[in-house]
């Protein structure tokens, strides 16, 4: 039987340490996904925009069509942090969601999250210090900027950050685990508020005023795309040694 997404073999806990996306991911056929991979090759949320209420449509389309300019970070910070955001979100190729643009806009507008851990600086300062900390780590690898590092080294550093495993420099005055919480909160919100990411994961989107009616297991609205598993015929034949 051909493999498909019903089985869990493609999930990270079932293929520990395997780099890159799992095999079998189709290319996007309708609309855009980050890096044009996804599970739902014919699902394009933006094609539904005409069915959304005006307030939602304005907000979501503006997010896609007019990514805000970088105003909060300076050029050096922006380059380092854009590379950081792309490493956290595994965006190694175009098309990319401009994650840092949304983060910068939020910080520029002072739209923070409503709490701050005792002993931690303001979220805006946390971001600046993280940029310095990442560049410090790059210098240990002989390069001046985190953005200049090869992808595997960037992943190594981000992995240490995620594990709270950084020390010295900025980290002596800012626990890395708390800083990780601050920055990832904004990174995830920026990435997964973008319709390209909704296409990739098969999310139905705003759905107002229309709503959903087909809620059962395996059901979908007529306009929701279905999941697809794609096998490259040439590679498959070679792999299985089939004629």
């Amino acid at each position: 039987m051909a493999p498909d997404f019903r089985e869990p073999h493609h999930l990270p806990k079932h293929r520990a340490g395997a780099p890159g996306p799992p095999p079998g991911l189709p290319r996007q056929r309708r609309g855009t996904t980050p890096q044009m991979r996804g599970r739902y090759p014919d699902h394009d949320v933006l094609a539904r925009a005409g069915h959304w209420d005006a307030a939602t449509r304005r907000l979501v389309l503006d997010r896609v069509e007019n990514p805000p300019p970088i105003r909060f970070f300076d050029a050096r910070e922006a380059s380092t942090l854009a590379a950081f955001c792309d490493t956290v979100c595994a965006q190694e190729a175009e098309p990319r969601i401009p994650v840092l643009a949304y983060v910068d806009d939020k910080l520029h507008g002072g739209r923070l999250d409503g709490y701050q851990h005792a002993g931690m600086p303001d979220d805006r300062e946390v971001w600046r210090r993280v940029a310095r900390g990442l560049d410090d780590a790059a210098r240990e690898h002989g390069l001046d900027s985190f953005a200049a590092l090869p992808a595997d080294v960037r992943r190594e550093i981000v992995g240490a950050f995620a594990d709270g495993d950084l020390s010295g420099g900025v980290w002596d005055h800012m626990p890395p685990d708390k800083a990780w919480g601050v920055v990832t909160r904004s990174v995830l919100a920026a990435f997964y508020s973008h319709p390209w990411a909704w296409n990739e994961i098969g999310f139905g989107g705003p759905a107002y005023p229309q709503g959903y009616a087909r809620m059962g297991v395996g059901q979908r609205e007529g306009w929701e795309g279905d999941e697809a598993f794609e096998v490259d015929p040439v590679g498959d034949v070679l792999e299985r040694g089939a004629e």
Partner: peptide, 17 residues
């Protein structure tokens, strides 16, 4: 749960399951 990078993206793609 400890996943970022490609692992994050894959668990996200798996959302509907």
């Amino acid at each position: 749960d400890g996943h970022w990078g490609e692992a994050l993206r894959e668990y996200m793609r798996d959302y509907n399951h």
